[in-house]
Design a binder for these strands. Structure first.
Length: 428
RNA sequence: GGCAGAUUGCCCGAGCGGCCAAUGGGAGCGGACUGUAAAUCCGUCGGUUAAUACCUCCGAAGGUUCGAAUCCUUCAUCUGCCA
């Protein structure tokens, strides 16, 4: 059996833990059941969640049994954020998100074999509980004095205040741990370091009700060298759902990672061996321009999240669009596939007048590269607009059918990295 | 329940009757430099427009005024103090 603690220590993935020695011992003694929860606060999980998912996946690969919890109940309440009260989502929306997130989680775990994973939903054991039962059986074990110490709660008290709803969140999460302990013998909860308070509250609850000590383990918060928030780009959050973040954008995200973050990213996300990781880090240090580590990360993670096929398309698209070769020299199929991966929009044949397409500002707007025609003109004035890799300086320029590659595609680019295709559709 | 204060663009935060599409900072975006990196410098940062101009915008709805983000009324939310 793999020594998972040793592995996580090497990867610098342990921020806090209850008695690490005791946990290590228990893990060595045989398969352990552990859980990590995910609240449906959006229709998809994102990269921050992925780090947690993969930590649990490492446990499973080391022979332990994971429970993947979807917070159908906790998602209705909302974990307090230090910035302010959340807006409650309707039950229908939360239910819908629960379904989506459950499906996403299933991709990362093994549901066969002796340590098969189980997906659970805390709504199942929370929905029928009465208020009185909850307050007497769970609430009695909590000290408000201690709950007030929690960082997010303290921040809110100092600022705009906090509703009773969110204040109670910790009780629900603690109850989950207790329930999973009773149902599955779950004795470890993992999560991000921001969850430490919630997790140890569950540990305390189990100690009081079951007279047993269970374990807590948190991973460090992901940070970026430039101080910006991890997992976000100019276009927003990097989601795992291909409908929200295309495999192409997902791949590009890793490829564009900062050199300084590469080590942390490999440790957190990659399942490569220590030797392979060391090699990639050495390559980054000696030949940074090759970005071997970024490439390896992009390939491995896109494979994992979207599958080999999507990965290959995304990679081919990037090569085609960023290659220094002549776009016109690209085979039609490659170009079309690449542009479908990136953003794209269409032009109908009847919009073509005397062989000329709509003007460049209209096309830029339509492709989604800019948000308005004003922005399009601004981009052109700034020298950031390109068609088929040639800078466009005239905002009234209209491409002609002659400009279309293979008679069908026009490649638009904004700045260096944002690419979109305009496709000409034959008259219908 | 009473009194006082607050609510400005993605975020923070000035403005307190016309010169306000609204100072400044951050984030974002474009250019130069690069490695589809970082840092730095320059530019830009509501919408339509070739431009003049017009439209929308300062918690919500009304009102005063030739003119309101700025004054008044009501409402909503938040904060503090007093019951």
């Amino acid at each position: 059996m793999i020594d998972i603690i040793d592995e996580l220590l090497w990867r610098e993935q342990i921020a806090q833990s209850t008695d690490l020695g005791a946990l290590h011992e228990a893990l060595s003694a045989g398969p352990m059941t552990l859980y990590c929860g995910f609240d449906p606060t959006a229709p998809s999980l994102h990269l921050g969640n992925l780090a947690q998912i993969l930590t649990v996946r490492r446990f499973q690969q080391a022979g332990h049994r994971p429970l993947a919890l979807v917070g159908g109940a906790t998602g209705l309440i909302g974990d307090p954020k230090s910035t302010g009260e959340r807006t409650l989502n309707s039950e229908e929306i939360v239910q819908d998100w629960v379904g989506r997130i459950r499906a996403q989680l299933e991709r990362f775990y093994d549901f066969d074999g002796p340590n098969a994973a189980v997906v659970v939903n805390n709504y199942d054991w929370t929905k029928s509980m009465s208020v009185l039962e909850f307050l007497r059986d769970i609430g009695k074990h909590f000290s408000v004095n201690r709950m007030l110490d929690r960082e997010a709660v303290a921040a809110r008290l100092a600022k705009d205040g906090i509703s009773y709803t969110e204040f109670s969140y910790q009780l629900l999460q603690s109850f989950d741990f207790l329930e999973l302990f009773r149902r599955y013998g779950c004795v470890l909860q993992t999560g991000g370091s921001d969850q430490w308070g919630n997790i140890t509250a569950g540990v305390d609850l189990i100690r009081r009700t079951e007279q047993t000590s269970v374990h807590a383990l948190t991973t460090p918060l992901l940070t970026k060298a430039d101080g910006s928030k991890f997992g976000k780009t100019e276009t927003g959050t990097i989601w795992l759902d291909p409908a929200l973040t295309s495999p192409y954008d997902f791949f590009q995200f890793w490829l564009n990672a900062d050199d300084r973050d590469v080590k942390n990213l490999l440790h957190t996300f990659s399942f490569k061996s220590r030797e392979e990781i060391a090699e990639l880090l050495l390559a980054t240090e000696e030949r940074p321009h090759e970005r071997a580590a970024q490439r390896a990360l992009a390939e491995e993670l896109t494979d994992l999240v979207h599958g080999l096929h999507e990965r290959e398309s995304a990679e081919a698209a990037g090569r085609a669009l960023f290659g220094h070769g002549d776009l016109a020299a690209l085979p039609h199929a490659t170009l079309a596939a690449a542009l479908r991966e990136a953003a794209h929009a269409g032009v109908q044949a009847d919009e073509v007048i005397d062989g000329a397409l709509p003007s460049i500002d209209e096309l830029l707007t339509r492709s989604g590269l800019v948000s308005s025609k004003s922005a399009a003109r601004r981009t052109i004035a700034e020298g950031g607009a390109y068609a088929n890799n040639e800078r466009i300086t005239d905002e009234n320029w209209r491409p002609t059918t002659e400009n279309l590659l293979h008679g069908e595609w026009l490649v638009l680019r904004r700045g260096k990295r944002s690419v979109a295709g305009i496709q000409l559709f034959p008259s219908s």
